[in-house]
């Protein structure tokens, strides 16, 4: 009897969680779809002019900006994060892992506004001095995001590496392989799907992050043609304008969210296809 009750209760909770997601998606699409229909799908996603007061709703620069920033951030975060996880899994002495791992997890708890602040104070002047330009740029946003997704990438790929059966490692070492050969020829391929999952979650975090990006990206409404130019991402666009938007303008922000939703779905699908274990 009690079993049944608990079961029912859990089912209810599970369904309400899913229902909540569908509700949110429904609200976004209900607001966004009519506007996209009015403007035209092509004009909405492929035109470069965004002037809501004049009835121009083109978000191409922001789509490009979001993709650029996200991909670059994932490249930075994945490279650093995977190297770090590889070091912690295979080469670092036990005691140092016990100290480093909790510290890395702590990084995930720092509010994004702090990352943004550090970006403004340290990174922006550095980029301006080193490469020229305004400093507020694609590059700045990508670096900050790359650092922000490190804890996610490290923690999950470390778990994936540690989950590889020690038997494989022993088999490789017993053939006279070095630890590095063992790591990159046996352990990494065996941990492949877990590592890709780490990248996907990192990517999800990067594309959705808003506050830190607004602070360092410059938010200009132009097509980003160089890494040193300012850029506005889809999330920034929504956050920056929702305070005063109304009517079609507000609907266009919902439509921006809709596009973001679709992009994330596409990226996740691609990643899942790549991560599917080869049998």
């Amino acid at each position: 009897m009690r079993e049944k009750l608990i079961e029912k209760g859990l089912l209810l909770v599970a369904f309400s969680a899913v229902a909540m997601i569908f509700l949110i998606a429904y609200l976004i699409f209900r607001e966004g779809v009519p506007l996209v229909a009015k403007v035209g799908v092509w004009d909405f996603i492929a035109s470069t002019r965004w002037a809501p007061s004049k009835g121009s709703f083109g978000i191409l620069p922001m789509i490009v900006g979001s993709l650029e920033v996200t991909l670059l951030a994932v490249i930075i975060g994945a490279t650093l994060g995977l190297s770090c996880a590889m070091f912690l899994a295979e080469f670092a002495p036990r005691w140092s892992v016990r100290i480093l791992k909790p510290m890395i997890e702590l990084l995930a708890g720092i509010p994004s506004v702090v990352y943004g602040f550090i970006g403004v104070v340290v990174l922006i002047p550095f980029i301006r001095r080193t490469f020229g330009g305004p400093g507020f740029s694609v590059l700045a946003a990508a670096i900050i995001l790359g650092i922000m997704i490190l804890p996610t990438v490290i923690a999950i790929s470390l778990d994936a590496l540690n989950a590889v059966p020690p038997l494989y490692k022993e088999g490789s070492l017993a053939l006279g392989a070095t630890r590095w050969q063992t790591l990159h020829r046996v352990v990494l391929p065996a941990a492949r799907s877990g590592i890709i999952a780490a990248f996907i979650l990192g990517m999800g975090r990067a594309i959705g992050e808003t506050m830190a990006v607004i602070m360092v990206a410059g938010n200009a409404l132009t097509m980003p043609t160089s890494l040193l130019q300012p850029v506005r991402t889809l999330t920034s666009n929504i956050a920056l304008e929702m305070g005063y938007a109304s009517g079609d303008h507000q609907a266009a922000l919902f439509a921006t969210g809709m596009v973001l939703f679709v992009i994330i779905a596409i990226l996740n699908t691609i990643a899942l296809v790549i991560a599917r274990p080869r049998t």
Partner: peptide
């Protein structure tokens, strides 16, 4: 370890194609 090879209790073939399993040693 190259001169003194070892086979383990549980067959620990790598999760790689058959060919790559055998070519593993010569390759490294």
């Amino acid at each position: 370890r190259k001169r003194v090879g070892m086979v383990f209790q549980r067959p620990n073939a790598f999760p790689l194609p058959v060919f790559d399993n055998i070519a593993y040693g010569p390759r490294i």
